[in-house]
Design a protein around this nucleic acid. Sequence first.
DNA 1: GTTTGTGAATAGTTTCACAGCA
DNA 2: TGCTGTGAAACTATTCACAAAC
Lengths: 186, 186
Amino acid sequence: MHLSQEGIESVSSKDLAGLLGVNPWQIRKDFSYFGDFGTPGVGYKLTHLIRRINKILHLDIGHKAALVGVGNLGSAMLAFPGFRTYGFEITAAFDVDRRKIGRRKAGVLVEDIARLTNLDARDICLGIIAVPEGASQAVADRLVGAGVRAILNFSPRYITVPKRVKVITIDIAMDLARLPYYMSAG
Amino acid sequence: MHLSQEGIESVSSKDLAGLLGVNPWQIRKDFSYFGDFGTPGVGYKLTHLIRRINKILHLDIGHKAALVGVGNLGSAMLAFPGFRTYGFEITAAFDVDRRKIGRRKAGVLVEDIARLTNLDARDICLGIIAVPEGASQAVADRLVGAGVRAILNFSPRYITVPKRVKVITIDIAMDLARLPYYMSAG
DNA sequence: GTTTGTGAATAGTTTCACAGCA
DNA sequence: TGCTGTGAAACTATTCACAAAC
């Protein structure tokens, strides 16, 4: 992605592998499942590759997201520029805290969580849960009721949703907890 | 983990499976690799299970971590209570911004990144990278030089380190980017 | 009756090696 | 010569089924 800014037009599977920390044949095998074709002897043309991958992952159209929980982590999400890279935009934010409701954070109005309904009417298909601990299931239920089709969950709890809704959970503490196992003696 | 607060003493593989969203036999198989034993007809005793898992993952001793990058995400990390659950504590924070250096965030003094050396002398074995974009590799190099043995990397870049150092990268934007693929028509 | 622990069967992933194209 | 795309081999993980334990 950064490569295109450096005037590079083509990358080989070896280049990509080095950049991503995997083996070249993994790259080629993965691409081959989608019939993606590069040029033997040259590599993959960057513009073509990016367009193709965006299409496969459905990133070719923009997506609007609603954030629930404007605490430390939620605020970081609102300010995070990385979402734009893949065509995402947080266009709504919700919280329970009266002191936050009505104010703006990173240009987005913080609304009362009671108003978290009919997100589909606002063209929002995606929910981000950044509330602390136990509230996550209730928030997930509200998001599903409001019509989102996918949820990014930052709370350290497994949440249950209808199977038409896709959930990805990022449990930061648990990810960190995997590290000590690999650290030799200490 | 929350279960112990509810007075529950034993869990079956079925209970755990429901709680984690996986199959019961997956739980049993995974435990069996470590020769962990529950009681047939009853289940797994919670206190024993937690102690055993903490031992296996080396979470039975506390770990000190250094945070690099006290921006939005970094501040969220400092305030995040979840690390304590697994025995982690952020005891040092570093930034390049003169306005932040010398101040305290969530009780932790923000130091000049130039002072990021000899972390091992301060009993810190773990680095958390929360800097924006391109600075991540340079920060990783500094952390390795200062003696950390593992890194939690929040920047969307693959970083290269000696193989004795374990890295886990959490690319929030890319995790989010996986969702649209699963959302039907939109 | 209930639940664990595990061998065997099944499914999936990673790795390799090489034919074919630029 | 350099690199892709893919069939086959090796490996790993998941699922099942059931004997032994409570």
